[in-house]
Design a protein around this nucleic acid. Sequence first.
DNA 1: GCCGTTTTCGGCCCGACTGTTTTCAGTCG
Length: 600
Amino acid sequence: MALNHELSALFERMAQLMEIRGMNVFKSLAFHKVARQLKDMTLDIRKCCDEDTLKEVQGIGESSRKIIEQYVKERRSTDYEELAASVPAGLVPMLEIPSLGPKTIALFWKERGITSVDELTKALAEGKLDGLKGIGAKKLDAIKQGIELRAKSAGRMGIGDAQPVAESLVAQLRKVPGVRQAEYAGSLRRRRETVGDVDLICAVADESEGQAISDAFVKFGEVVRVLGQGATKASILTASGLQVDLRIIPEAHFGAALMYFTGSKEHNVRLRGRAIEMGMTLNEWGLYKITIEKPDREMVKSGGRVEKQTAHAPSAKPQAARTEIEVYEKLGLAYVPPELREDRGELELAERGTLPKLITVADIRGDLHMHTTASDGQNSIEQMAEAAKARGYAYIAITDHSKSQAIANGLTVERLLNHVEAIRKVDAKMKGIRILAGCEVDILADGAMDYEDAVLKELDIVIGSPHIALKQDEKKATDRMLRAIDNRYVNLIGHPTGRLIGGREGLPLDFAKVFAAAAKAGVALEINAGYPRLDLNDENARAAVAAGVKLAVDTDAHSIDGFEEIEWGVGVARRGWVTAGDVINCWGVEELLGFLRKKG
DNA sequence: GCCGTTTTCGGCCCGACTGTTTTCAGTCG
């Protein structure tokens, strides 16, 4: 699927270039749409080309089809190259800066010769952008802040973009002759929301096969540049700018290597300290008895990932090395799931054997947040329900947008009531799944809901979500949220902060107050699984549960394919030490309905 | 650029908010 994402990025880029060029806005809109289609598509794009089924995809026309076909064949696009050559390359990254759009970028470029983020930063500092028509001090300030926000996430990629690439590479690796096992490690395996690079570990039966595997790896389709390559290690850059490091390890040491490269650094430091206390030493090759001399303790303390490495295994026989479970066992610890390996108290519990039984994707019994064609979704009520049933879900809630969300085709009161009726009809007709009639209702700036109580009363489930006025101060934002929680018909707060990873800070809530109020009122808080939301984040999810709050892990799906993203939400929940019992959509339908009814 | 059993041309989810203005442009969702 990595090819779909590459193409999606290509169309996105082209749309952005058109905007800067000031070309027809509908033309760029069309390319944005193609990009979105490609990203959401579960069909293999190569297959679509071979079978000539591209023209059946809504939104992909003659021109887009030709671009796709050329890219699939030659991994390049002449249309893109021509467009890219028509503006300075540095302008495109400027689009990522919040509150700076294509018009202003074009203005700065034409009037002041600004062609990159660096030049923009310099010009701002030197006051070179003062006095431009339509640009005042406040605007310049907002741009400065936007640049700072961007810098924070610089060099890191979201899990939503990195994981498909990593999975594709791992799948290809597993097919290379000689490869016994392959996994991704690092922060991606720990399900961090952004990753700096991707670490792949593959096991071989015989070390002599390393070179051939490494040779095959650097020839994978995603690779645009080889940064370094040998028989035990290879480093490449993908089209999306992701650095991927491959380590080739003898099968007997696979578990130790996987552990070492999964981290976190802090977790590994603690494990190594423990090994030393037990008269052993732990490194990327395995757990070894200390026989000759005591290892340099300072060295061990300082190192998470020591740069200096020997390329071959020590000659001594390890106490444990083949699997992670073995290594933890020999250290007197229960197996620690990767998501917990952050030195946030997991080792103490692992020692006592009292680690929480973390939620898994299999625990999810239904999804409580999704959209249909009634507002801005791609599929009908029936299609969403059928897809949910196929996933084994026992129930879903249809929750389209409320009236304020004009861009998302939010429902007027009349349309909502008709929609509720339509949902109930499908529910009555369809066997094997319960369909709840709900709505994602905007929490307005003052905390009032976007519909009157008399309307909310008609719904089985009400999600209150903040979409607008996300730059409020802490007091205002917290009061707003408390008022929404207080509403007797609100059951769940959707994406509570409204943050977007790498794009928007979100509401600066006083979480202690919000959690206390939600726990008391019987309102659940959402972990929105959609990337780049992942909101609540891991630490807030953990604090919420500790405060007695129930959670819901939902995808906010806008199409049947959107259900897939549940995995990322569950990842966040696992990082937050969340168990299935804490999550209302892991409960049976009767128990869930009881929770929803308790309020109203 | 994409789309169409009321269109092969003429539309394309559109309103709120902000900052710049004195009637509007740009950005965002």
